[in-house]
Computed example of a mutant assay.
Amino acid sequence: MPRILFSAPPELWAEYRAPLARAFGEAGIAVEVTTETGDPAAIDYVVFAPRGGISDFTPFTGAKAVLSLWAGVETVVGNPTLTQPLCRMVDAGLEEGMVEWVTGHVLRHHLGIDRYIRADGPHWDKRVPPLARDRTVTVLGLGELGRACAEALAALRFRVLGWSRTARSVVGVECHHGKDGLRPVLERAEIVVLLLPRTPETEGLIDAERLSWLPQGAVLLNPGRGALLDETAVLAALDAGRLGHATLDVFRVEPLPPDHPFWAHPRVTVTPHIASETRPASAARVIAENVRRSEAGEPLLFRVDRARGY
């Protein structure tokens, strides 16, 4: 019987205990799930979230895989003691939540809804927005989440440009890739959505130079990774009018400190890292399926490429 260590902050165990039991039952797998390390060599799988207590994976000599509860693995992928296969979390709940957040905020900025919500007194503003087909949205990152968001925006008839490090093809999306492809998609972007992973290549990608490529008044949405942004450059671009608004869900330090200038800036919207939250029910099924696959000798789902960092 596989022995599984649930290594995550204690409050998550209460949320995951029942969903994991149901998911393994539905998968027809008898397992023992524990929150106690005991004998590390006897652990077959580690279900992992940051701040769960494990920083040294060396003692887990019998572990067949480390299964992350998070889509982002930047906090663990570079750990030199982690020699076991690492799988990141990709599940329907993450994708649906991200699509809803992105489409909701793109439509909010496209329609100019803030003008009416924040208006003081009578505000009969007759500025009619263009149709979606006349608005260009650029999505940086065309992995599972980026692709799903780009497809949803294209289905709403936005002109969608996509950019990724390597060549991708998405129906209804004009795709670009590589270093030479970034500037053209930013120069045409009225709304930019950042859905790239955090890697050495993407750290601080949106800096002063790349912000200068945007059309005047463009809107920036970042539900991807806080480290993608040079925060000082973003604030300067907002103050200069280069950026019309920044709607941000992720930050370099979380929770965002109360004295951070993003809170008080009139053209910044802060959401508390809720765009793509892991849902225990759907995430538990992904964990159970990967254990089933491993025990059956099948390839693991969503295995991390260490060289690429995701």
Rank of each mutant, 00 (worst) to 15 (best):
S282Y: 08
L301W: 11
H110Y: 05
L235K: 00
L94K: 02
A167P: 01
R108Q: 08
V304Q: 11
S294C: 13
G241E: 14
A237C: 10
V253N: 14
F262Y: 15
A49G: 07
E231S: 09
I117D: 02
M89E: 06
L161D: 02
F6M: 08
A233C: 10
E254V: 15
M89Y: 07
T247N: 08
D91K: 03
W13V: 02
H177M: 07
A246I: 05
L5Q: 03
E289L: 14
D180E: 15
R198V: 09
V250M: 13
P122V: 13
A189F: 04
L145Y: 01
V46A: 04
A132Y: 02
R308D: 13
T166D: 07
E36A: 12
L12W: 14
G309S: 10
V46I: 12
R22S: 11
M89D: 00
P258G: 10
P280C: 13
P40M: 09
W163M: 05
R188D: 08
P122I: 09
D44C: 03
C149Y: 00
R133N: 14
A30R: 09
T75D: 14
L107M: 10
E209Y: 11
R183P: 00
G104L: 04
V170M: 11
E96I: 08
L111F: 07
P184H: 07
T75M: 13
W263A: 14
A49I: 04
T75K: 11
P215L: 08
T81P: 00
L156Y: 05
R17V: 05
V76W: 02
L5V: 05
H109T: 03
P261A: 11
G143A: 11
V139Y: 03
S282W: 11
S294Y: 10
R198A: 12
W101K: 01
T278W: 04
A284E: 03
G204M: 09
F302S: 05
N222V: 03
R242A: 11
A18M: 07
T34F: 03
L131Q: 12
A14I: 10
K64C: 03
A264N: 13
E96C: 09
T269Q: 14
E96W: 03
A246V: 08
G121H: 06
G112I: 04
A14T: 12
V185K: 00
A281M: 14
F251N: 01
M89S: 03
T232R: 10
F24M: 06
L256T: 04
E231C: 06
E36I: 06
A155I: 09
P272N: 15
S294T: 14
G112W: 11
P184T: 01
C149S: 01
P50K: 10
E151S: 09
L182D: 08
M1A: 13
G53S: 06
R108W: 11
L221S: 01
G226H: 01
P10F: 13
V90K: 03
L214P: 00
R165P: 04
E95F: 04
I29W: 03
H109R: 11
H245S: 10
P184C: 03
P184Q: 06
R183N: 02
L205T: 05
R168F: 08
W13G: 03
W263I: 15
D39G: 06
V73M: 02
G226N: 07
A288D: 04
G97W: 01
M1V: 13
L140A: 06
T103E: 02
A227K: 14
R17P: 01
V170K: 09
D91W: 04
G143M: 06
D230S: 05
A30T: 12
L94T: 01
A150P: 02
L12M: 15
P80Y: 05
G97H: 01
W263N: 13
